[in-house]
Write a protein that binds this DNA or RNA. Structure first.
Lengths: 339, 339
DNA sequence: CTTAACCGCTTAAACGTTTAAGCAATTTAA
DNA sequence: TTAAATTGCTTAAACGTTTAAGCGGTTAAG
């Protein structure tokens, strides 16, 4: 049984292919009377007609695919939310995501961008699993492109990233509002927008609360469980009643460290994480109060902006960085301090 | 600047499009003398010619995309390895993965399968984030299809799944070899191939070691941290010296429970997990010995099998389920028992 | 010396769609 | 009553490839 083409539908309906095409798609220039349109549609459906994306794409000059190049979907799993957001938003416009993860290899990345161009994608989104500056990707076509969860050092493309400063503020505010005044900050040793942005937010809020900045409350560790575990001693010695951790994994390590010393959370120490890495944060004892990364929204906004650029021919060339809010997630790891 | 087509290349090289096409692709039926071929290729390259996947696909009757439909990439992150494996193997044959995750919604799934058909994919892989039986997906074309990490209840399609029985054996053997005789098994309450398979493996190994099966050592809990935490009491009372946990999250809960009672791992209790969920298992104190799921391999084998089916026209219709080994991952949570 | 095979290439059809241009019949405007 | 506009459609070109068929010219076989 051969595949049903538009031709078959047209013949069955006793009209030309042109009429069939206009009937099935709502072309605004060529209005077809409802009677014909419905008849053709009914016949198309009864024959089991399925449009042929390749034929369509060939004449339109573009497929209905949107390229999504990322360094690694799988490794840092919670970043998969970016894809989810992008997929949902793309879906709403009838577009499909063509995802390639490159494993961070530049050769793969170049090939990936070339393949996207070959596929005649509508545009390309370039995304990373953690927020960072990147070398400008070598987009292989003149199609629109933008960066999500990263930004190119030369500032040639629009970018959408989490607002690290606001995130740092949110975390610190949670502790301040609970009455804490001696708030340690366990930062990461890896230079990144997160490292500087969250610290900046922390400082801002302290200043606004008129708490003098005390650099002995700031420590730098590897951003994982081991880092948190090892810094616990210093943390206790510092006299802090609360700690803002660079991320949930560090917080998890500190949980371990405190428990090993017989200290309780939040009784002896209030803890705030960052990232809202569900597998961890929601299931620690007690559940961890943290700040989420707006991954889903990054994806949604990325596609939305990309499609907007696709549609406006008169390219609004204002290349800008959009910062998206990081929401505080309140659970059980902060104690209200009596003042 | 218009896009360079094969036509442009042909004209520049002073040959026909046919010759250009044969020169650029290595067609085995039509050999073109090396001199011509190299000349054309050089010109194509210097003009910056990029093949047009849509034109190609239209005449070939298929795109170079492979459909990958999954219920949820993002939620259960470690399953992203399936995609990684699939992507790597597809890449080796110059194919691209067209991934759609449906969020488990049937309406989305049906639409997704329809869209894959529209895109003229070479074939479709249907995958789930945990191993389970599924209703037979409504594949919308006669293209090859197969299931990965799941199998259809009617057995209409080939499937590739983890070997749960062997995994259960592997976990239990680790404990037996360390000298344990009283081995508890904290199973999940959710019915699944994992639930029955791992138990079966546990039983097999016990029997082979001539340890009588003791049903009081088997408990059933929700497969997460809370489940593990809550069962810790029972576990201690059972007199077991070791516990095989349905998964790493349960193990994490048991870590918490034991620690809260001042018991140590592996001194007071040896623990084996399942899944090798890196964020957890590699970073617990002590690092968790567990059994990995062969997600990456599932992906690789899935694509390999799919492409094989694509190529053999004389459809070898032997619809079979392939079971892939689950490797033990040895870390620090088992103590050698002196016998 | 004739016939057949081969070489290196060209011509042209085909894949399934969209859409500009055009045409006959009918309606509207003047 | 006639010209102009509108309606409802058709024809045919175009998108960028692949590939079957064919065509002169050379070489090999008999």
């Amino acid at each position: 049984m051969r595949k049903i083409t538009l031709h078959d539908v047209a013949k069955a309906a006793g009209v030309s292919v042109a009429t069939a095409s206009w009937s099935i798609n709502d072309n605004e220039k060529h209005r077809i009377p409802a009677s014909t349109r419905n008849r053709v549609r009914k016949i198309a459906h009864s024959l089991g007609y399925q449009p042929h994306a390749l034929g369509k794409g060939l004449v339109n000059g573009t497929s209905d695919l949107i390229g999504f190049v990322t360094d690694d979907v799988a490794t840092m799993p919670f970043a998969g939310q970016i894809i989810k957001g992008a997929r949902d938003e793309a879906w709403r416009s009838g577009k499909l995501l063509l995802i390639i993860d490159t494993g961070g290899k530049e050769s793969v990345e170049d090939k990936a961008l070339a393949m996207m161009a070959e596929q005649q994608v509508q545009g390309v989104i370039y995304s990373t699993w953690y927020h960072r500056p990147v070398e400008t990707p070598k987009f292989q076509s003149e199609k629109p492109a933008l960066l999500v969860n990263c930004f190119d050092k030369q500032g040639l493309y629009p970018a959408i990233v989490p607002d690290e400063v606001q995130g740092g503020r949110a975390a610190t505010e949670l502790l301040i509002k609970a009455g804490h005044r001696h708030i340690a900050f366990v930062n990461t040793t890896s230079p990144s927008p997160a490292q500087t942005g969250r610290l900046e937010g922390y400082k801002q809020v302290l200043e606004e609360a008129e708490i003098p900045f005390d650099s002995s409350l700031i420590t730098y560790v590897k951003p994982n469980q081991e880092g948190g575990f090892e810094v616990t001693g210093l943390l206790i010695d510092s006299g802090a009643t609360a700690v803002f951790c660079h991320n949930d994994r560090v917080a998890m390590g500190i949980y371990d460290g405190l428990r090993q010393r017989g200290l309780s959370i939040p009784g002896d120490m209030s803890v705030v994480g960052f990232d809202d890495q569900m597998v961890i944060s929601a299931h620690l004892h007690p559940a961890l109060t943290t700040v989420g990364l707006p991954h889903y929204d990054l994806g949604v906004l990325g596609i939305r902006k990309l499609l907007r650029i696709c549609h406006e021919k008169n390219a609004n060339k204002a290349v800008s960085i959009t910062r998206v809010k990081c929401p505080p997630i309140i659970r059980k790891s902060i104690s209200e301090l009596l003042i």
